[in-house]
Design a protein around this nucleic acid. Structure first.
Lengths: 344, 344
DNA sequence: CTGAAAGCGCTTACAG
DNA sequence: CTGAAAGCGCTTACAG
């Protein structure tokens, strides 16, 4: 049954105080005598009063809502991150408004404008690039923005990423050390700084000992695309003996093609390394060597940063970079010992 | 730069009309001359005006926010559903506020009360049961609630589920028809109606031809739990020749134990059937027989239902049940032909 | 520590 | 179709 609205005025009347006093108690920014507080809470419960957060948001011009824009949840890394964002923001008294947007500029722009009407306190773009017009749009009303797992040309926008370049480089070094000679890279998306950094780091790592990749192809963070590219690369004469893939999500697709279509043994015929260390990478079915990109720590750092900005605190660092540890599992092996057998 | 707030009054002044007229144009519920509308939009853009949705929500007591409470996103079925919810709600002019809650009653209650302060227009609980106190809490202010992939004692709460009982039954029939003799069930969570229905349907399906399961154990929708249970079941003398698992998410864990710890062949030694048909089930690494629970269709039905309730329309059905098709892949085989070899 | 008063930026009858 | 006026349920200086 829909009873008439219960407002702070009703609670005030029931408790015998003024309405602002009730407001102060529920906004909990004031010191009222504990006795009265208790009486008031009792009356509130009895009446079924619920503090209307929206009004404060209207007055202050800031709700306790944070806009969380994501591209796709198919990659389990994002599912994990989203879950953590939700709980982490809640712990700080904020709510996560989840919005999906394709990486198409117009779409992101319209989506963001849309939720601005809710007077969001801040905005997080996960794996989505901010356009200049969007940045300006957020700038005017002073809505803080943090990029998660993305960077972009405008280096001034605060961001949290893994140390992608270093991660790529470490990977190259590992493969070379393990005696691989025909190394390929299936990059995430070279249009994203994350994908580009991983690729450039990898190329730099190969260049250190004077190697070059036998192939380096982009696949847009997409499973199907990754499969097509893998078939292409393995149809050439210098079929790779190792592939570094831009993220785990695609690496699973690459492995599927190698094992089930091309009947190659991993790591017997070819080594595979992914990036992210999503939980699935540790499943025995994959047991995949990968670089760890700790979702939880990255999310926490992102929220910390956003909170600093909201509170107007000074921002010591504009780019939090989290080191990616190499997790060596069963999809890489040491080929240095069987090098003489190559020509057998 | 944070300029002073631009309000509808500013736009009104710039356009030479009254403030309510501006409000009418942006609320788009009124017919104003196209010419003036154009002038107004131009002025709004120039001034950087953004319609404040929150105020309308305050006045009407209903925001355009839908609370979406989920238990966990680790199961890819939910990741898929969440993504669809977000886009589907957006298409209707609503926003999804994502909240995670453990299935612990107190937690769900507090979480729901929390977001009620935002004057949500409706609430969706995905795989979470509503307590009676919660139902009452929502009832008073008249906030519609729909359960997604969950039912419960209170049959009056609108819900959308798969036809779980029928799905379970079909599965049993298939396994029997394929000649399996020692059939086990690792149930989702018998404390959830979804898990219970699948189990009961399965048991009924086995009972039809007079069979009983060799084991029927619960595993709380949890991978680790499913693994423990699998080890137990396969340590007994009548080691199953088929296992029906309560959902795909757990079925992957069951398969991991069978293949990698017990070195059993699937489907040579044992057949596996899951439930949900998440995308991963079709990956060649799993190629798993399962029952389809179409996330997209279920989400659409849920949103449809919620919209009906919000608009106060009559609700023809309180329970949308979506048929689960059996998708037969490579983890089941026909054992009727090799029955005589059993004793070899 | 608490109250009276004004106001946040819209919406909504009510007139014209 | 448009305007003047009141009001949504809180917060926030300003007094006491």
């Amino acid at each position: 049954m829909t009873c008439g609205k219960v407002t702070s005025v009703d609670v005030a009347r029931a408790t015998g105080v003024s309405q602002p006093t009730v407001g102060r108690v529920f906004a909990s920014d004031a010191r009222v005598s504990p006795a009265m507080r208790a009486r008031m809470m009792e009356a509130a419960t009895a009446l079924g009063y619920r503090h209307n957060t929206l009004v404060r948001a209207m007055i202050t011009g800031r709700s306790n809502i944070i806009g969380l824009v994501v591209a796709y949840l198919e990659n389990p890394f994002y599912a994990e991150a989203i879950e953590r964002f939700s709980t982490c923001l809640k712990a700080r008294g904020y709510h996560a408004l989840l919005v999906t947007a394709s990486n198409d500029e117009n779409n992101v722009d319209s989506v963001v404008k849309d939720i601005m009407g809710l007077q969001v306190a801040g905005m997080i773009l996960a794996s989505i690039s901010a356009t200049l017009s969007l940045t300006r749009e957020l700038d005017r009303p002073g809505i803080p923005l943090v990029l998660f797992n993305r960077g972009q040309e405008d280096a001034m926008i605060p961001k949290v990423t893994a140390a992608n370049f270093e991660g790529g480089r470490k990977t190259a070094h590992l493969l070379v050390r393990r005696g691989h000679k025909r190394i390929a890279h299936v990059s995430g998306w070279q249009g994203s700084l994350t994908g580009l950094d991983r690729m450039n780091g990898f190329l730099a790592g190969l260049a250190d000992p004077g190697q070059t990749p036998v192939a380096c192809i982009d696949s847009h963070y997409d499973r199907d695309h990754a499969k097509v590219v893998t078939r292409q690369v393995f149809a050439t004469p210098d079929c790779p003996d190792a592939v570094f893939v831009g993220n785990d999500h695609m690496a699973f697709a690459v492995m599927e093609v190698l094992r089930h279509e091309l009947a190659l043994d991993i790591p017997g015929d070819v080594s595979i390394i992914g990036y992210d260390d999503v939980k699935m990478a540790a499943w025995q079915d994959f047991n995949m060597t990968t670089l760890c990109q700790p979702a939880n720590r990255m999310v926490d750092a992102t929220v910390d940063m956003l909170m600093q900005m909201i509170s107007g605190a000074a921002m010591p660092v504009r780019h939090v970079k989290i080191t990616s540890e190499l997790i060596e599992r069963g999809t890489t092996r040491d080929r240095t010992k069987d090098s003489q057998n190559d020509q057998t």
